[in-house]
C-alpha cells in the first residue's frame, strides 16, 4: 500500500512538472521553474498566469473526480457509479450554458462559473429533497440523479435549439466539451473552497465505506451512521463536481475509470481506494491535459473529448479483462 502511494504520488509530481513545461512558449525546466518564482521577464507571466493555474486546476479537478468516483462507487457498492450519476455536473453545465446564452458570461467574466455553481447548488437541494436522507435508500438516490441529469440535459438542448445566435451556440458546444485552457488564478480561487469542503467531507469516509462491504445492516451495527455517510458522500460529490464543472466544463470518464483501474491494487477495499483514486485521478487528468497540448497544439483539442476518447475504449478493455477473470 505504501508502494502504491509512492508510485502514484511520484506520477502526480512528474505530470504536474510536465504540465508546467508544455506550451507554445518554449522554455527549459530550470528557466520555467525560475520564472514561476518571478525571475526572467515575459516567461514569468506565462508561468504564473497561464500554466500554473492550468496545472493547479488539472490537479484539483482530477483529484476531485477520482475521489468522488471512488466514494460514490463505495457508497452505492456499484462499480458503475460515477460522479455524473447524481446529476450535479449536468445541472452545473446547464447553469453555464444559460450564462453564455444570455450574454451574462460576456458581460462579466465570473458569471459563468457562478451561474454553474448556483445551478449545482439547486440540483443538490432538489436531489436531497427527492431522495431524502432515509438510510438504505440508494435506489431513490440513483433515480433522482438520473431524473435531474435528464432534465438538465433536456433544458441544455432546448437552449441550444432555440438559440438565435450561432456564435453563442458554438461557444456553448465547445464549452460543454470541457477544457482547462485559458483559466486564471481567479478560477482556482473560486473552485478551491468548494473542493476543499468536498475533500474534508469525503476524505475521512474510508472506514465507513469499508464497513459497508458487509451491507448496510452490518455496517450500522458496527457503528456507521448511514444517514451521515449518505449526506457526506452526496454533498461532498456535489461540492467537488459542481466546482469542477463550473470552472472547466464537463470532463467525463475519469471518475469512472480511475477507481476501476486502481481497485485491484488496494485489494478491492473501498477505503484505501479513496486516496488512491484521488491521486490517480489527478495523474490521469494532468496526463490528458498534457496530451491535448502535445498531440494537436494548434487545434485546441478539448480535454473532455480526449478523456472520453481514451477512457471509453480503455473501459471496454477493463470490462473484457474482468469478464475473462470471472469466467
Amino acid at each position: 500500500m505504501t508502494r502504491l502511494f509512492a508510485v502514484l504520488a511520484t506520477l502526480v509530481i512528474l505530470l504536474a512538472l510536465a504540465a508546467l513545461m508544455v506550451g507554445p512558449a518554449d522554455a527549459g525546466l530550470a528557466a520555467s521553474l525560475r520564472a514561476l518564482l518571478g525571475e526572467g521577464g515575459p516567461l514569468v507571466l506565462v508561468m504564473q498566469e497561464i500554466r500554473l493555474p492550468r496545472m493547479m486546476l488539472g490537479l484539483m479537478i482530477g483529484a476531485s473526480l477520482g475521489l468522488s468516483g471512488a466514494a460514490l462507487q463505495g457508497y452505492l457498492r456499484n462499480p458503475l457509479a460515477e460522479p455524473g450519476l447524481i446529476g450535479i455536473s449536468s445541472s452545473a453545465a446547464l447553469g453555464a450554458v444559460i450564462a453564455i446564452q444570455t450574454g451574462l458570461a460576456a458581460a462579466f467574466a465570473l458569471a459563468l462559473p457562478l451561474m454553474a455553481l448556483a445551478f449545482a447548488l439547486l440540483a443538490v437541494v432538489i436531489l436531497l429533497a427527492l431522495s431524502g436522507t432515509r438510510r438504505g435508500d440508494t435506489l431513490t438516490l440513483i433515480l433522482a440523479g438520473i431524473a435531474i441529469s435528464a432534465t438538465s440535459g433536456a433544458l441544455t438542448q432546448l437552449v441550444l435549439n432555440l438559440s438565435p445566435n450561432p456564435f453563442a451556440t458554438s461557444e456553448i458546444v465547445f464549452w460543454l466539451m470541457g477544457s482547462l485552457a485559458d483559466r486564471s488564478m481567479t478560477h482556482v480561487a473560486l473552485a478551491a473552497p468548494f473542493m476543499g469542503l468536498g475533500f474534508l467531507l469525503m476524505a475521512g469516509l474510508g472506514r465507513s465505506l469499508d464497513a459497508l462491504t458487509l451491507g448496510e445492516d452490518a455496517a450500522e451495527s458496527m457503528g456507521v451512521n448511514l444517514t451521515r455517510l449518505r449526506l457526506r458522500v452526496v454533498i461532498g460529490t456535489a461540492c467537488v463536481v459542481g466546482a469542477g464543472t463550473a470552472v472547466a466544463g464537463a470532463i467525463g470518464f475519469i471518475g469512472l475509470v480511475v477507481p476501476h483501474l486502481l481497485r485491484p491494487f488496494t485489494g478491492h477495499r473501498p477505503g484505501p481506494l479513496l486516496w488512491a483514486s484521488a491521486l490517480g485521478g489527478a495523474a490521469m487528468l494532468l496526463a490528458a491535459d498534457v496530451a491535448v497540448r502535445v498531440t494537436l497544439p494548434d487545434r485546441d483539442l478539448k480535454l473532455g473529448v480526449l478523456t472520453a476518447l481514451v477512457g471509453a475504449p480503455f473501459f471496454l478493455h477493463l470490462i473484457w479483462r474482468n469478464r475473462r477473470a470471472r469466467a
Binding site: R77, L212, T213, L214, G215, D217, A218, S221, R263, G267, H268, R269, P270
Partner: peptide
C-alpha cells in the same frame, strides 16, 4: 456483534 441474514460481500476482498 451482529451478523445479518443477508450475506452481503460487496467487493471481491
Amino acid at each position: 456483534a451482529w451478523m445479518p441474514q443477508a450475506r452481503e460481500i460487496a467487493w471481491p476482498v
